[in-house]
């Protein structure tokens, strides 16, 4: 393993994040605060409790997940798309590194950025609602796994994308709807039975459910299934990336 190269990529990518620290952090914090104000305070005051948790607190895990998933995806996709766009990819391709090292560098940095944002939103939440975390280690584990797996997905999108429109397309058309319909703002049990069944095909449901279990000890689906789902998702992304580098798809002619 060329650890020096992994570190170089990681540090270089993190530098981009710190260069734009204000915009990197302010926008997710601001939008999350708006969610708290609108859903937690204004609408939430009219909803009593969901599964014995105040609505304001109930949406915290979902909101963290929403930001973490979108941030991990967009950071990772941009991270690898940008070198393709400006042409600096030549250096990666001519360097003595393999696919795993490149992936670890880019995905590691994107996941770290998403983690930062997740933690900041978590801290912000304390200003709006009372929350206690019943299973802190599980919470950290779910958060980490989500950061990594969505950064992997973003990495694939970044390699696939041929222009900036395509780079935005998947996050906008697929990830945002899946996250909104994945129970960020409601419990799946609140849906009519038919929709409950349909929802179970949404992979995000398992992640949000598992994450929420870590907070409140209640979940829409068993935690073991949530864990299995995220592990499967991560493995699928890794396999796709391995294939991409093996065949040189969209990168190496």
């Amino acid at each position: 393993m060329n650890w020096t190269a992994i570190r170089a990529i990681y540090v270089f990518e993190m530098a981009r994040f710190f260069r734009t620290l204000t915009q990197s952090l302010i926008s997710p914090v601001l939008s999350t605060s708006l969610y708290f104000v609108v859903f937690g305070t204004a609408i939430g005051s009219r909803i009593e409790t969901v599964e014995d948790v105040s609505y304001g607190a109930f949406i915290v895990p979902g909101l963290i997940m929403l930001s973490v998933m979108t941030q991990a995806t967009s950071n990772a996709s941009f991270g690898i798309y940008f070198p393709k766009f400006i042409g600096t990819i030549y250096e990666l391709l001519s360097a003595p590194v393999n696919f795993l090292e490149i992936t670890l560098g880019y995905v590691g940095a994107a996941a770290t950025k998403a983690l930062f944002i997740g933690v900041i939103i978590f801290v912000t939440a304390f200003f709006f609602v009372d929350i206690t975390v019943q299973h802190p280690f599980a919470m950290i584990a779910f958060l980490l796994m989500t950061c990594v797996s969505f950064a992997l997905l973003g990495f694939i999108i970044g390699i696939w994308a041929g222009n900036f429109e395509q780079l935005q397309l998947i996050p906008l058309l697929v990830i945002t709807p899946l996250v909104f319909l994945g129970g960020s703002f409601y419990s799946v049990t609140m849906l009519p039975p038919v929709w409950q069944t349909i929802t179970m095909f949404n992979p995000v449901v398992y992640l949000i459910s598992g994450f929420r279990w870590a907070f409140f000890g209640t979940a829409d689906v068993p935690v073991a299934i949530s864990l299995a789902a995220i592990a499967f998702f991560m493995a699928a992304c890794m396999a796709a990336i391995w294939w991409i580098f093996r065949t040189g798809w969209r990168i190496r002619q």
Binding site: N2, T4, A5, R7, A8, I9, V11, F12, A15, R16, R19, F82, P83, I86, G87, T88, Y90, E91, L92, A95, P96, V97
Partner: peptide, 24 residues
Amino acid sequence: PQEINLEPFETVENTVSFSRGLFG
């Protein structure tokens, strides 16, 4: 390379340092 492919917002020093690290 033939084309001027560089990360526009990075400093010269960091960009060169990055290349060194990338090559292990």
